[in-house]
Amino acid sequence: MSTNALYTDLSGYYDLMCADIDYPAQSHAVKRLHQLFGNGGQRHLDLACGTGPHIRHFLDFGFQCAGLDIHQPMLDKAQQRCPEAMFSVGDMCDFQFDTSFDLITCFLYSIHYSQGLDKLRGCIASAHRALSDNGLFCFNAVDKTRINNALYVGHSVQHEGSEFTFRSGWHYVGPGERQSLRLSIHRSTNGVDESWHDEHPMVALSFPELVRLLEPWFEVTLFEHDYERIVPWDGESGNAIFVCVKRQGPDSVGEAR
């Protein structure tokens, strides 16, 4: 089954797949980072927003929110969850809006869906263009040099008479700019078992490489991947939160040209 088919056909189970994610903690932490580093504005755009759980929290914080995702079935569910928000189908590597935003987020490592460095550059440029003065671009990422191919995370959940088991893990064979997210879904219903397996191609890069891509456009600060407290990145862990303040000046203008 292809990547698109998996996400489209199983969009109704996406929230089950993410049932172990602490959306309130993630949303609150990024709101706090926006208070510390951002411009104080309340216009928010969530890239690769999925079914909109993060947007729901930002709406409740008082933000005016928009969401962008490439999968319409995801956005249909997001609109139900967040009727106050504006949603658009589009590619996060090449997007434009008529309005500007004060905060752009990209949760759940979705920045890696850029699928190549050229595409990632397009995402960075699009985010810079869409931000207001001193706006904040915030996302989490994984360093390709610290990926453990043997490590998986998983959880099980009951839903409508079935038991679902979800497993996912990063895979990087190196060298190069491609890694993948390996995903498996198992459903058991009345003794009948079904399984889906997929491998999502993603862009791979180290944190120093990612910082170099960002710096012409943004002032970049890295934090530990800890949504309970704000702690500077220790320089060793393979997951981090990137806090990027829009740069104004000759470097970003020259890069944009």
Rank of each mutant, 00 (worst) to 15 (best):
M1I: 04
M1D: 09
T3V: 15
A5L: 08
A5H: 12
L6N: 13
L6M: 15
D15S: 00
M17V: 04
A25L: 10
L33D: 02
L36K: 08
G41T: 08
G41N: 06
G41R: 09
G41E: 09
Q42W: 09
L45F: 02
D46M: 04
A48S: 06
T51S: 04
P53E: 14
P53H: 03
L59V: 06
F61N: 08
C65P: 01
A66I: 07
G67I: 02
K77N: 11
E84P: 02
M86Y: 09
F87G: 07
V89N: 04
M92I: 02
F95K: 13
Q96A: 15
F101G: 05
L108Q: 11
Y109S: 11
S110C: 11
H112E: 10
Y113P: 01
S114W: 10
Q115W: 01
G116M: 06
L117F: 08
L120F: 08
A130Y: 06
C138Y: 13
A141G: 12
D143K: 10
K144H: 12
K144R: 15
R146G: 07
L151A: 12
Y152P: 02
G161N: 08
E163F: 01
E163L: 13
R167P: 00
V173G: 09
E177L: 01
Q179Y: 03
L181S: 05
L183V: 07
V192F: 13
D198Q: 15
E199P: 04
H200C: 11
P201D: 05
L210P: 00
V211R: 15
L213N: 04
L214Q: 11
F223Q: 09
E224T: 12
Y227H: 04
R229E: 09
W233T: 04
G235S: 07
N239L: 11
A240E: 05
F242G: 00
V243Y: 00
D251C: 13
A256C: 00
